[in-house]
């Protein structure tokens, strides 16, 4: 219902024509495209997609409907890093709500993970298990009943191959969760909107419950909701954009007061992604980290 009202709202909201991003943190479609072009240029793991023709938005170029990056690794669950409390930055969004930007002011979450790993390697006895692989707990509760047992399908009469590196423990091949990330333009809120779809260590889609393990607990279920992707017929996790403009305005002001060069609009998505990383701190998608917030 919510999404129906939203799409109704989106259809009657006029397309934003003049640039207002410095004043209010919102984007025009043209600015979204310009910022997207820059992102794709700077971070080639992102690319534009045209999506389904029938769902094309007329205010965006046909070949540049939304941005996508696929197969992004996610090594550990948020819960396991949220216990380490340090280095948090509070971001007020102007309406009294506070975003917690964990770990991102000086070091990225991944760098932290790295330093944790370094510490662990000092201990000679520890085997390679710094990364929590959530297979056991994930499989036990819900998958077992509705997926058939595949043991009987295994074949042993196929050609032996002596040239393959086996995916065994000692090969150090790490299986992780992966995420497909999408950024669409939300005409109603006039901001980018982030969509996420996750797969488990074996390439099976993650259930809603498991996906929420990868969202910051401050945001899960509040700002992150399951909704239908506007271009792809799938229900995905999405970071609700209602506060995006305010937060972006805040960040833009912060950067302005630091007396740096005036912020150009093509950097918008870079900053947006950085802000998004506070919601999904363990998903290792690419964006430049050259801005301090």
């Amino acid at each position: 219902m919510q999404s129906f009202l939203h799409s109704l709202g989106e259809s009657i909201t006029p397309v934003l024509k003049s640039s207002k991003f410095k004043e209010t943190g919102v984007l025009t479609p043209e600015e979204f495209v310009a910022a997207g072009d820059f992102l794709v240029f700077k971070c080639p793991t992102w690319s534009w997609s045209a999506g389904d023709d029938s769902k094309r938005r007329p205010y965006l170029p046909a070949s540049k409907q939304f941005l996508v990056t696929k197969n992004v690794p996610c090594f550990k669950r948020v819960k396991s890093i949220e216990e380490i409390e340090e280095d948090e930055v509070m971001l007020e969004d102007g309406e009294g709500d506070v975003w917690v930007d964990a770990y991102h002011s000086t070091s990225s979450s991944s760098q932290q993970v790295e330093s944790e790993l370094k510490d662990m390697s000092l201990n000679d006895n520890i085997q390679i298990q710094p990364i929590e692989i959530a297979t056991a707990d994930g499989d036990s509760d819900d998958d077992s009943d509705d997926v058939p047992d595949m043991d009987e399908f295994e074949e042993d009469n196929l050609q032996e191959d002596h040239g393959t590196v086996g995916f065994k423990e000692e090969d150090n091949i790490l299986k992780t969760r992966t995420y497909d990330l999408y950024m669409t333009y939300d005409k109603y809120y006039q901001t980018p909107r982030m969509w996420l779809y996750g797969y488990d260590e074996h390439g099976r889609p993650l259930s809603e419950k498991h996906m929420f393990e990868d969202f910051s607990q401050d945001h899960a279920r509040k700002t992150v909701t399951m909704e239908s992707h506007p271009h792809i017929s799938l229900t995905m996790a999405s970071i609700h954009p209602c506060k995006h403009a305010n937060v972006m305005k805040r960040i833009i002001d912060n950067i302005a007061t630091q007396g740096k060069d005036e912020l150009q609009v093509y950097l918008y998505l870079m900053i947006f992604l950085k802000f998004v990383s506070s919601v999904i701190p363990t998903i290792e998608y690419d964006y430049t980290r050259e801005f301090t917030m």
């Binding site: 998958d143 509705d146 997926v147 058939p148 595949m150 043991d151 399908f153 295994e154 074949e155 042993d156 196929l158 050609q159 032996e160 191959d161 040239g163 393959t164 086996g166 995916f167 065994k168 074996h202 390439g203 099976r204 889609p205 259930s207 809603e208 799938l234 229900t235």
Partner: peptide, 29 residues
């Protein structure tokens, strides 16, 4: 000699299966 069938989760030569009820079933949706 030709090789190439992908190994399954357990490292054996075998297929995989996914249950997409949550993403496909109208009721679940």
């Amino acid at each position: 000699k030709i090789v190439g069938w992908e190994r399954n989760v357990k490292g054996k030569l075998g297929p995989r299966v996914v249950n997409l009820t949550a993403s496909m079933d109208p009721r679940a949706l």
